[in-house]
Amino acid sequence: MNFPAIWTIYVHEMTRFFRTFVQSFISPVISTSLYFVVFGTAIGSRIQEVEGVSYGAFIVPGLIMLSVMTQALSNASFGIYFPKFIGTIYELLSAPINFLEIVLGYVGAAATKALFIGVVILGTASFFVDLEVQHPLAMIAFLLLTCISFALFGFIIGIWADNFEQLQLIPLLVVTPLVFLGGSFYSISMLPGIWQTISLFNPVVYLISGFRWSFYGAADVPILVSLLAISGFMLLCVGIIWWIFRTGYKIKP
C-alpha cells in the first residue's frame, strides 16, 4: 500500500473544502434551520407525534441522511470528474499507485466532507428539538456506511460522466426523488397500502429507517435488513469500481 500517496490525494481533495470552509459550514446550518422553520414549526405544529416522537425530532435523521447522501455523491463525483475533465488524471494513471489507493483518497475525502456536514446538521438540529440517540454506535455505523457508500457511488458517476450535464443527471433524476420518497419527512406506515409496498423497492427507505431507529428505536423495516441493504449497496459499488479499473472503462483506453 502506498499510504503517502493516499494521504496526498486525500489532503489535496480536502484543501478545496477548507478553502471554502465558511460556505461549507454555513450552508448546512442555514438550510437545516429553514427546514425546521418550515417543516418542524409551521407544518409540524399541525401534525401529532409520529412513532412516539414530535414531528420536529422525527425528521432530524431524514434531514441528516438527505444532506449526507447528496454531499457525498456530489463531492465524490466532482472530485474524480474534474481531473478527467482537465486532463490531470494522467498523473494518477502514471504514478506508482493502484485503483484501491486512488479510490481511498477520493472517496475518503468525499466521505469526510459529508460526515462533517452530517455532524453540523445534527448540532444545528439540537438547538431546535430535543434529540435522543438510543443506539449511538448504530447511529455512527449508519452514518459512516452512508457517507462511504454514496461517495463510492459518486465516484462511479464521476468516472462515467462525459460532461457536466451527465454529472448532475443521476443525482437529480434518481437520487433526489429516491431520497425525498424514502421517508425523510414521513413514516412509510403513513402511506396507503400499495405505496408502502412500492416504497420497499426504494433502497433509501432502508437507510433512513435504520438511521432513525438508532435515534428513537422505531423503524419501518427490520434493522438487520437495513444494515444488509446498505452493506450490499456498498459492495456493489466497490465491485463496479473494481471492474472500472480492471477494464480501464472511460479512463484508460
Partner: peptide, 10 residues
C-alpha cells in the same frame, strides 16, 4: 509537491 506525494515519497 502533489506530484512528489503521488510517488509516495516524503
Amino acid at each position: 509537491t502533489f506530484s512528489r506525494g503521488l510517488f509516495g515519497l516524503p
